[in-house]
Computed example of a mutant assay.
Amino acid sequence: MYLTKSDIENLERKKRLNIINSVSGIKPANLIGTKSKDGQTNVAIFSSVFHLGSDPALLGFITRPTGEVPRHTYENLKETGFYTINHVPTTIADKAHYTSAKVDREVSEFERCGLTEEYLNGFHAPFVKESSLKIGLSFQEELPIKINGTIMIIGQIEELIIPDEAVDEKGYIDLSLYNTAGISGLNTYYSLQPVASFPYARPSEIPDFGA
């Protein structure tokens, strides 16, 4: 298949959406948990979480335009300043997937999708109990992306819960030990297995690959 910009623009809408959502490869599957000031909880799956820096420890994610469609995750984290990011194990991929359904604000996806709210160390936003790696964040900044109306949300890590056995002496995390899932496109889930681990790349240490 060869597609030009014009070809892409002229594809049937759903086919274009599926192709473009898949070309970036396997993305992290995360559940973002929030709670409004009046106590209404929300959890939704996102595949756009990314690293922004380690000092301070920052993570970003992309949320869709707010407009006519309610964005409860965005509204809650802006209102309270706190949210959680929870890795999705393959064992709950089905439950995590259905949190993307647009339910009414008064309906908690935790209850509707069979997930369990967990509150740790007095943190305001709920963690997902079924997740092994959980991150509590404080909202720091939002950056509007003008070209398509999406918003980059930047948060600072306040709480980090990782299984001890998943972290080696250098701080590397083995995601395969607790069956973290990845997402391709909008609805295909993958299990992750390590392929190799390499040292920090220095010019003097590049192997001779016979180029």
Rank of each mutant, 00 (worst) to 15 (best):
E117A: 06
D38Y: 07
A96I: 02
E159N: 14
K134Y: 10
L11R: 06
C113I: 06
I173R: 03
S191H: 13
S24M: 14
M152W: 09
I92Y: 00
T80I: 09
E75H: 12
G33H: 02
L133I: 15
Y172Q: 03
S6A: 10
E205N: 10
A29F: 00
G185L: 07
I154E: 02
C113N: 11
I157D: 01
F209R: 10
K14C: 00
H124K: 14
T150E: 02
D164W: 00
A29P: 01
Q140I: 10
T80L: 09
E159K: 12
G81R: 05
S191G: 14
Y74W: 10
K146L: 11
G67W: 01
S197C: 09
A93H: 02
K146T: 10
V195I: 14
I19M: 09
Y189D: 04
H51W: 15
V43H: 02
E165I: 04
E169Q: 13
F50T: 12
L120I: 15
E79H: 11
Y83W: 14
T99K: 01
A96T: 01
P56W: 05
S197T: 15
S138W: 06
S138F: 00
S36K: 15
K146M: 10
K35F: 01
I162K: 06
G136T: 01
G210P: 08
F61E: 01
A29W: 00
S47I: 07
S54F: 08
Y172M: 10
E111P: 00
H87G: 04
K14T: 12
G155C: 09
A57P: 12
T99V: 09
S184M: 13
G33P: 01
S100F: 03
T34I: 10
Y178Q: 05
S131E: 05
D168T: 08
S48W: 03
R16W: 08
S54T: 12
L175R: 00
A125I: 11
